[in-house]
């Protein structure tokens, strides 16, 4: 999926994909060190989507099955929001990887999910911003919910944007059947700022 026509040029999209790839690699390394597991990385996917199509797109990325989701806003060189969506079939295995013993209390599960999201979002979006020479700040992550259908992770009427640039990367730990999807959503009006940063990056090549 590479449908960012009319918003980013082909070169800008290619640059964003490669920069997201490097950011994803840094996030993968960060979470792999915590989980002490090899994490398989996907090829980043970029799309421009209307708000009412975002739930279907998230389902397309994540697939069937129940998920847990965390959101975290970022601001600086460009502004947006990250959704971290984890499959929750193996939440106890995730708990064990995160250093929790035994069944998780609800507050422990929330704390764990926020920690995972914070690590992935900070490393990935931070890595992207660093390559673009942009400063980036993050709000505190917040839990959207657990045991959600992928379609209900976000409701279009909750989004403040009509159109968004969506960048998705996926982290997989096969032996634990664990996957985490990081989906960055940028309001269309922020894409111009991102485009300027990408142009500056492209000028260095």
């Amino acid at each position: 999926m590479n449908a960012s026509a009319n918003v980013l040029s082909g070169d800008q999209t290619d640059a964003l994909q490669e920069i997201a790839n490097i950011g994803m690699g840094q996030a993968g390394d960060s979470i792999a060190r915590i989980w002490q597991q090899f994490v398989e990385l996907s090829v980043p996917r970029i799309a421009i989507v209307e708000a009412d199509r975002i739930p279907a797109l998230i389902h397309h990325f994540v697939g069937d099955g129940l998920v847990s989701a965390v959101r975290q806003a970022f601001h600086g060189g460009f502004r947006g929001e990250v959704l971290v969506v984890l499959n929750t079939g193996n939440r106890h295995e995730l708990g064990a990887l995160m250093g929790y013993d035994g069944p998780l209390e609800p507050h422990e599960e929330e704390e764990m999910l926020l920690d995972v999201a914070n690590v992935l979002a900070g490393a990935c979006i931070g890595g992207i911003a660093r390559q673009l020479g942009a400063d980036m700040g993050f709000s505190a992550p917040s839990l959207i919910g657990t045991d959600l259908d992928a379609h209900s992770v976000v409701r279009p009427d909750e989004l403040s944007v009509a159109t968004a640039l969506c960048v998705e990367v996926c982290f997989n730990v096969k032996i634990h059947q664990l996957s985490a999807h990081l989906i960055a959503l940028l309001p269309r009006e922020e894409v111009a700022a991102l485009g300027e940063l990408l142009d500056r990056f492209l000028c260095t090549l």
């Binding site: 490097i22 840094q26 390394d29 792999a32 090899f38 990385l41």
Partner: peptide, 9 residues
């Protein structure tokens, strides 16, 4: 030449 910088990779 890779962005996957995990020691295992």
């Amino acid at each position: 030449v890779s962005a996957d910088v995990q020691p295992l990779a």
